[in-house]
Structure formats: C-alpha cells, structure tokens
Design a protein around this nucleic acid. Structure first.
Lengths: 210, 210
DNA sequence: GTCTATATTCAGATAGAC
DNA sequence: GTCTATCTGAATATAGAC
C-alpha cells in the first residue's frame, strides 16, 4: 500500500496515480485508456485532465514516483546503519531494502517494466536521469566495498551491478505473498551474489568450452 | 538475424514474424497495430490475415518462437559437451548459450518482456507451458550439480534459478554490441553466480540488520 | 498471396454545466 | 473538482478485385 502526502488535493492525486500504475501495469502504455484509469480510480475520464494535462504526463508521474520510492527506501535503510558497518552488511541491507520496496510498490515497478520502450521518447529520457541517480547509489556501494578490499580483484563492478539488479528486479514478476517470506528470498539472494552457489572446494576449471 | 525454414511460404511467414516481434517489442501488445507490422514487413495490413487469423495468433507465434529458440540453443550446447563434463562446465555452458540466444533474438525476447500481462489470458496460458519446459532444463541442471556435491548445501535451487535467469535476461535490455564482448559478459556472470562477488576470506557476518 | 476499400468500434482530449 | 457530451482520428477485421 504505497501512499504519500495526506493533504486534500494530494489524496486525490494519489488515488489517481495508484490507479494509473495499476492499469499501465496490466496493459502497457498504449493499451491503457484514460477511461480505464478513471474507472479504477472511481471517477470519470474527463476529470483526469484536471490533475494531469495528458496521458503522457500521467505515465511520467508513475515512472518517477516508482524510482523515488526505490531511491528513498534504499538510501534510508543504508543511512540507518552504524558508520562502521561492513561492506557486506551494507550490500545485504541494500538488497533487502530494494526487494522490499519493489514488492511494496509492485504496480509501479511492473508498470515501468511494461511500458519500457512504449513511452514517448522525451518523457522517457527525462525519467532516465532519475533512474541513473539510483544506479549511482549501487555503483558507490560496490566500489566502496572494493576499496575496502573485500571484492574479488578481477570483478567487473558494472557487470556485477547489472546482473544483481536484474536478478533482484525479476522478483516482482514471480513473487507471491503466500510463498517464501521476503527475508528468506533476500537472504538467499545475498548469499548467492556475495558467496556464490558452489561450495568453495568445487572451484576448478574456470573456462567454459564454447 | 534469426531465421528458420527456407521454403517459399515459410520465408514469407518468417519475415512477417520478425516484423511482428520488432513492432511488439517497441509498442507492446495493445500498442501494436497490424498496419505497423505490415509496413515493417513490406506488405499491406489486410495481407497479414492470409497468414495469421488474428493479432492474437500472431503474438502467440512470436512468443512460442522465442522460447523454442532459447530451448534449442541451450539444450544443443549442453548436448555437445562430453559426457563427463563437470557440473560447473555444464552451468557455464548453459549461461553462455542462454545469453547468446537472447541477444541473437533480441526482438523476440524484448517482445516477450513488453507484452507480459497484455496478451489475452488464453494465449498466455498456452505459451506458459512451453516456458515451463524451458525452466525445467535449468532445474535439472542445478539439481544434478547438487547431486554431484558441488553446490552449497543450504542453497535454495528454485531461488537460485530465478535469480540467475533474472540477471541473465536483463542483459537484453542493456547490452550494446559496441560494448563488452559477449564472452566477457557471460564469463563474469558465471563467476558471479558460481563463486560470488566477495573474496573468500571476507565471508563473515551473514545476517543483515533490517 | 496481396491489394483496396470499408464497417464498426473506440481512443485522447476539450467544452462547459454543476 | 467532477460531470456529460462530443469532436476527430485511428484501430481490427472483412469483402472482394487482381
């Protein structure tokens, strides 16, 4: 249940934004109709235009809200850590916060995935700047772990970040509340990315054939 | 450049299917118009209906073709391995084949991602059966590695598979031919999932705080 | 096999009453 | 702020000529 401000106007805008995320998630950008969003929000289609000038502005707001939620969840979790927290703990904390945030805001995250490449280019480019600032949080997390000397010296941190976030974000597609608890999932993911799947003694023969 | 049969009719169907994958990728299911697909394929909209009964049948063909390509690429790469190949080599080979296949068939893979949740439910359910048979290939790969004793005993193989495939599949969104060679990427991914990001001696303090 | 033409339906956005 | 009514453009799918 994602909810922000509680002022009068904001409350109405919030319901609209949630409805928009929900419908964009289910139908993609072009497949979403203003009428469908309005129905989901309990108003009529024409009324949306009092809040947002266009469908384009609406998807922009959904996109940006999703990233801002992620960014603030992860940075807030990190800032609550003691100053001397180990790099390992910092990464585990970020993984946990990231996964929790994407599951808490599933409609927004799934809306982003669905509308990838469907949103007008100008809107998308504007949004990508926000998105990159979130990527920066992870880049810094990993490079400070490397400076602390706990990361394999041959690791490519860019590839590691892309792989990790890809694996984490996929969760929003398959996770069901009735299944494993979130803590179980995030702990397993942390161990996988930090320690690997294999037992240490099985680490021979690095080069694949083909 | 994915291409299958070379018979006369098949050639035409193939161009149509490629065009469909391309447009579905860019605009999602509902956002894709038969006119746009036709234009991309160099024919007129009405002509599509000679090959496919409906837009729905067309997306079904795109979806199924994408999975079949993945399935055959990975199983073929695995079958070329010597019978005594180590579990590690088998997993590395599958990772390499999977990533190569998704990059070779980018339009099909991205079309799948975009239309997630937009395709009529009946078409999607039919397609999901194919998809699960591909998941089975990975499940068997991981569980046979566990039987060989090379996998951490506390690892949840279902979560490992979901995390790994999520990380691999994300590649199709960011990979650019001008960047790192594919081999560099797949080697890095293999090391990450099998050995982990951290140096072995840095493995203390397993429990995250929050 | 591919074309042109068309029927039917429905989209985004606006105007002005309440 | 939200409504109803409406303009205008464009979609899927079909029919029948070539």
């Amino acid at each position: 249940m994602p909810r922000r401000k509680t002022a009068k106007v904001e409350l109405s805008r919030g319901r609209l934004l949630d409805a928009a995320a929900h419908i964009f998630r289910e139908r993609g950008y072009v497949g979403t109709t203003m009428r469908a969003i309005a129905q989901d929000a309990g108003i009529e289609a024409g009324s949306i235009y009092y809040h947002y000038k266009s469908k384009d502005e609406l998807i922009g707001a959904v996109l940006d809200f999703g990233i801002v939620e992620l960014l603030s969840s992860v940075t807030s979790a990190l800032s609550q850590l003691p100053a001397d927290a180990t790099p390992r703990l910092r990464i585990e904390t970020a993984i946990s916060a990231h996964v929790s945030a994407i599951l808490d805001n599933g409609d927004y995250m799934l809306a982003m995935r669905r509308v990838f490449g469907q949103v007008p280019a100008a809107t998308w480019r504007r949004h990508m700047r926000l998105r990159e600032s979130y990527g920066e949080v992870w880049s810094k997390l990993l490079s400070s772990a490397r400076r602390a000397g706990v990361v394999r010296t041959d690791a490519d941190l860019t590839l590691a970040r892309l792989f990790l976030l890809g694996g984490l974000n996929w969760t929003v597609e398959w996770y069901k509340p009735k299944g494993r608890p979130i803590r179980t999932v995030t702990r397993a993911f942390s161990t996988l990315i930090l320690d690997g799947l294999l037992v240490p003694r099985a680490r021979q023969a690095r080069k694949p054939k083909k």
